[in-house]
Design a protein around this nucleic acid. Structure first.
Lengths: 342, 342
DNA sequence: TTGAAAGCGCTAACAG
DNA sequence: CTGTTAGCGCTTTCAA
């Protein structure tokens, strides 16, 4: 072992070893660098022997941007978003980008996210499941950092962002249609977090289709996206004045997690059969939805397509010609399982 | 608005505006920088007005390391590790570090993880739920990047790493003890991925305690950590020759997800009562474990403590004086629910 | 094509 | 305590 192993090899080291200038080394590592195929090959060869790879920090510094993408997520435990996160990381990698992961809890560290984006000159920021203030988006725009919203957006906003979302309205419609076709008469909606576009669109689509059939929701309530809330909501249905005479025979829950709580409570606390006494439908298609204890009918979010669209946006960078929100809806499929009648 | 908004403000800009040298600005932003409180305040003031924040890329470049921590995760869907990931990101943030998230699928992008670590001069790499080749660890060590293993390690290894792990052996023992105390006689183990330390330790602890009571496992099998595998394993128990005469009356599953499949299959395919006919215990304490449909007894991984230990390691950096693995076990508590007799 | 040189924004000696 | 200076490792003109 004659070689003293330096911790890190620089382009200068390679240049010396290869008998070329440092800039030649840089060019060799630039895809469309003006350099002869021959010298490039030689340099790459030497670089490889020395274990050299370009320093991303220096590169990003001089180019004023790197391959980092900031991924913002909100405190919440929805298995669907865990899947999103994994997929996102995977796809970003495949596109030569890296995920800088940040959890946002409240206003104060929303500012932290801005800071981080600036400090690392990130390419873009992807916000998933964030209930955002449009000022945050504006702040990102102000420092020239593109914002992509995943599965959440604001309708009335002049903020410049691109959003990728499941077509939640259409999903709500589809569910109503299926339930109607199964001859259900009395419908309940158990929603999630009220001020989220996912909750609103799913509900509105549901109500819309029901309305066209001349039917009103007999029960509607929303609070948060959790199992416990699903349980609680069922108790509220049974506690409501009208419950002694007319119970809903179909319940649409704004997401699967809520639906799971609804089913368990219906079965175990109130001795109801699902779907014989009441049909229950969710939204997302999380892994647990297909467990034998539930067999939950649901709308599957088209994660692959949503991911592909997100990557497309990252590549095409349509941010500069934006005059307002650019929202892209992608339709999901209804999955018929055994928690709802057919 | 007289000010022309430059995209990014540099320390030089601040220096000019504040009438000080650029290095003064740098010092103002260095916690223990030698600078008078007065000038610091002034500089901070001006910086704030200009919207300046130090460029992390430049800083990392010159310091030869930044505040990035690479987090490696393996393709797998265990809700427990989703929680770990979120916690990790959160704690890292609180310690002023950032999570650079990378998914590792196979050998080829194990190399990618090395490259990334090098390119960004990461502080450390945390591997969670990775079945690793010790060569990868060695490669990280070779370029001076500390490795922390989360909930997985290799016993016979000379690799230099620090590991934080739930005391899985002890957990297995505790479960055996509880089950023994409930007067169970015939025990089965349904394991997860065979070559993982989590699976081995949980099993060995279980067998150890059983052995001390003079009892052998009547059924043992392992394959992977999934719901479907739990289902499949139960079918195998019932299909085994001895099953007509003696079925196990207590089953320990290497993790909760497997246990969920076991319970559903026991109840719905074989019409058994849990825990009346058979007790089922899992490991992890994922959210679904406490759903009313399961009420799974399990060992709760002490995530908070494990996280705290991980952060401690990151701060204290005991990596240099390492002559081999430094494994830190943290004990988890048994949670008695209704899937097992008391 | 190639090399020399400037500079991205910052930290860390080194004088004063 | 403060300013000056020299890089960190790279990309990018600019000449040659």
């Amino acid at each position: 072992m004659t070689q003293t192993t330096k911790k890190h090899v620089s382009s200068t080291d390679v240049a010396k070893a290869a008998g070329v200038s440092q800039s030649a080394v840089s060019r060799a590592f630039t895809p469309k660098g003006k350099i002869s195929a021959k010298t490039r090959e030689h340099i790459l060869q030497v670089a490889n022997e020395l274990g050299y790879s370009p320093n991303a920090l220096a590169r990003s510094l001089v180019k004023q941007h790197g391959d980092l993408v900031e991924v913002l997520t909100y405190r919440q435990s929805n298995p669907f978003y865990d899947a999103v996160l994994h997929q996102l990381a995977e796809h970003l990698q495949q596109h030569g980008k890296q995920a800088l992961f940040l959890k946002v809890e409240d206003e104060s560290n929303a500012q932290e996210s801005l800071l981080l984006a600036k400090q690392y000159r990130v390419q873009a920021v992807i916000m998933m499941s964030i209930t955002l203030t449009s000022t945050l988006i504006d702040q990102f725009s102000a420092i020239g950092i593109p914002v992509i919203l995943f599965n959440r957006y604001q309708k009335s906003s002049s903020a410049k962002f691109v959003a990728v979302s499941c077509n939640n309205f259409k999903g709500g419609q589809d569910i109503a249609e299926r339930l109607l076709a199964a001859r259900h008469k009395r419908f309940a909606f158990i929603g999630g977090k009220p001020n989220t576009s996912t909750n609103q669109d799913r509900r509105d689509g549901f109500i819309d289709k029901l309305g066209k059939a001349g039917i009103d929701l007999s029960f509607s309530i929303e609070r948060e996206y959790s199992y416990d809330w699903g349980c609680e909501a069922v108790r509220m249905i049974f506690a409501s004045p009208s419950s002694t005479t007319v119970l809903p025979d179909a319940i649409f829950c704004a997401n699967d997690t809520v639906a799971l709580g609804v089913i368990d409570t219906l079965k175990l606390e109130f001795n109801k059969q699902v779907p014989d006494d009441v049909s229950v439908v969710g939204f997302d298609d999380i892994p647990t939805a297909s467990f034998k204890a539930y067999e939950l009918s649901t709308v599957q979010q088209p994660l692959d397509k949503m991911m592909a669209e997100t990557m497309k946006i990252l590549e095409e960078r349509p941010f500069d010609n934006l005059s307002g929100p650019d929202i892209r809806f992608i339709e999901g499929d209804f999955i018929q399982r055994n928690s709802s009648k057919e």
